[in-house]
Design a protein around this nucleic acid. Sequence first.
DNA 1: AAATGATGTTAATCTAGATTAACATTTACT
DNA 2: AGTAAATGTTAATCTAGATTAACATCATTT
Lengths: 195, 195
Amino acid sequence: MDDFQPLLDYINRLVQLDENEEKKLCDLISYRKLLKGQYFLQQGDICKFSGFVVSGCTKTFFVDEDGQEHVVMFAIEDWWTSDMGSYISQKPADFNVQCLENTTLIQISYEDQQELLRQIPKLERFFRLIIERAFVSSQKRIVRNLSMSAKDRYLHFRNVYPKIEQRIPQYLIASYLGITKEFLSKIKSQLILEQ
Amino acid sequence: MDDFQPLLDYINRLVQLDENEEKKLCDLISYRKLLKGQYFLQQGDICKFSGFVVSGCTKTFFVDEDGQEHVVMFAIEDWWTSDMGSYISQKPADFNVQCLENTTLIQISYEDQQELLRQIPKLERFFRLIIERAFVSSQKRIVRNLSMSAKDRYLHFRNVYPKIEQRIPQYLIASYLGITKEFLSKIKSQLILEQ
DNA sequence: AAATGATGTTAATCTAGATTAACATTTACT
DNA sequence: AGTAAATGTTAATCTAGATTAACATCATTT
């Protein structure tokens, strides 16, 4: 049988599922292994699954009208990934989710999640709690984008997500920060001169 | 007795409360009237209340280390306002919420909301649904800030929130968009020349 | 009606970050 | 090992938007 323990541990940090509830949950989730470069979701498709990263790393990005790619977020172990807008509305996704490393996910389909929410009211609470947190960090990112220079945003990123920074190419971090790779390179050489 | 109908209507669009549940809810919420200029929440205080705007208009903003004000969001009729980060953690708020007009709100205290969530599981679902939506629009705003010019962000704002634009001084809209009032003025005169 | 403060405009100058392009280095594939 | 592709750097030039400052308009109070 597949090992869903990482997700169960994660959930049990916020709500306590009994054995029966854990069983129901495990019946409706599934394992998925993807290779580096493979897509978990493509822009324009309907986001059928929400994914919990067990190992590996994904980037969420979109391509604008000018063909430019913009990284929206990364996800590593113990993070969720999906296009929430598409997932909750079951309309075409704005975003791609692609693996930056070989990645294993635990996925839940939209329909099964609805079923689980009906059967296990505790999960209603669980998902409320994690989305509250996601919303707060999204707001904080807006605030940083409004009030901080590119250099300070980079320093913040480096402090808060040191694990992510080490695993990911610079040009993707630049995109996440809303700057070009050339400018990030300039910032880094400035920082080296400073210290 | 106070009139909580606007909030009940809003909730009943997403979940169906029975009479008993509505009663419990109404016992734990309260009305609050604030004058133009008054604060619903001040930066540094703990956000004790989440507010549902019945009439009027608020701005959420923060003052950065340089003393610069940044508008994070507005709220008009049927919108929620609070500092969610402070509210869910009961730690000091990053934001101020100030009334731009005389404003009436329905407010719920953090403790009472926890009590309501225990007593009325449907509300767990209700809050999950509205926070999901808030999260999605927050993500979309990040995307716009990453990929659109100031002019396009302004045009988007004007299309999506025409009611807000008419009620609010330009310099606050500029701040919300992440630009200076002078540059917004320039954008507007350009737009007039174009059409 | 005058005065004060809040809001909005215009224009000159400045700068953070973009663009372009050439080159260096690392990684992965045959 | 050798080659191609992916990633990273540097420097010159350019531009979206900031800053400064002077002035215009509108609203509120006395």
